[in-house]
Simulated scan of single mutants.
Amino acid sequence: MRIRSHRPRAVLALVTAALLGVAGCGASGDGSSAPHGAVKGRPSPKPSPLWNRSPHSVAAVGDSITRGFDACTVLSDCPEVSWATGSDTRVRSLAVRLLGPEGAAERSWNYAVTGARVADLPEQMARAVAEKPELVTVMVGANDACRSSVSAMTSVARFRAAFQDAMGTLRDELPKTQVYVSSVPDLKRLWSEGRGNPLGKQIWKLGICPSMLADADSLGSRAALRRAKVRDRVEQYNRVLGEVCAKDRRCRFDGGAVFGFRFGTDQLSHWDWFHPSRDGQARLAELAYRVVTARQPAG
């Protein structure tokens, strides 16, 4: 009986495996099958940076501060002096600084609403998303702390949930849009700076931020405790803003710059001694511009 030799098959299998192995080792990430080092490929393009310091469009969401309320006339929005998107040459808004006057007029949008709280932010963000901006600015939280009483302030948990919802609304549609998040201003400093003005205190009695500004002349323990609780809540809101923003690679929090800004009465509206004046709006624009154009995010 003749025994068949399997050597040709074995040799063929070895040759096939070797050829496949060479092809596999030579495969590059772009699908090239050339052996490694045989052909010098094109240099890989540099990855785009996570943060563009010169975005080409800006949308703003938030509350009355971003609407320029009481900066021009009493009880009126004045979006032209908005720190975020205004056209006023004395303010030089963030949009003007980034895009120039003509660019800001064509490629910036202000969807902030006077009186808005963080719960209103997702709806505003949805409107901003429709413009497909490269940068969205967020300033919200003052109205969540400025309530009829301490107990009426927005809870930290609800504040976090609403802000996360707003960020989710943005990311569902625009995963690469950048976000600048301002800290909530220090409302206690506002009280300490404005309470020396008799007219301002009379206006505050009309119901402006009662949780902080009621009984402005009182230095008793109950009033002091109430103001301390409001300030503490603002600090908690700022921690939430920073923590949520830190989880998004294209989000920059100001690191508490607005909260820590040592504003005086020149930066307050002389209509209500609460909202920023033109000068105050200009300072907010400057702080935002520093964060947006910095090489590294705020520490």
Rank of each mutant, 00 (worst) to 15 (best):
A257K: 02
Q296N: 06
R290F: 04
I203R: 01
S64Q: 07
G200T: 04
V129W: 06
A95V: 04
V96I: 07
Q281V: 01
V91W: 04
F159N: 13
E131T: 09
S155T: 15
E80Q: 14
A128M: 10
S28H: 08
Q236Y: 00
G29T: 10
S269R: 01
W204R: 09
A166I: 09
Q178I: 11
T73D: 05
R283N: 11
K176L: 08
S5N: 07
A223V: 08
R9V: 09
G103Y: 06
G68W: 01
D215H: 00
K176G: 05
A105K: 03
S44D: 10
R117G: 12
A216Q: 12
L199W: 04
L50W: 05
A112E: 02
C245K: 04
A294T: 07
R171W: 06
A84E: 13
T265Q: 12
G168C: 04
A157M: 07
D232G: 07
P133G: 07
M167Y: 07
V22K: 00
A142H: 04
V113L: 12
S277F: 05
E131L: 08
R226S: 09
T169A: 14
A84G: 03
C146K: 08
L50P: 02
D248H: 00
A84V: 04
S183L: 11
S108Q: 11
S183V: 15
A288D: 07
I3H: 05
C209S: 03
M153V: 10
M139L: 14
V39K: 06
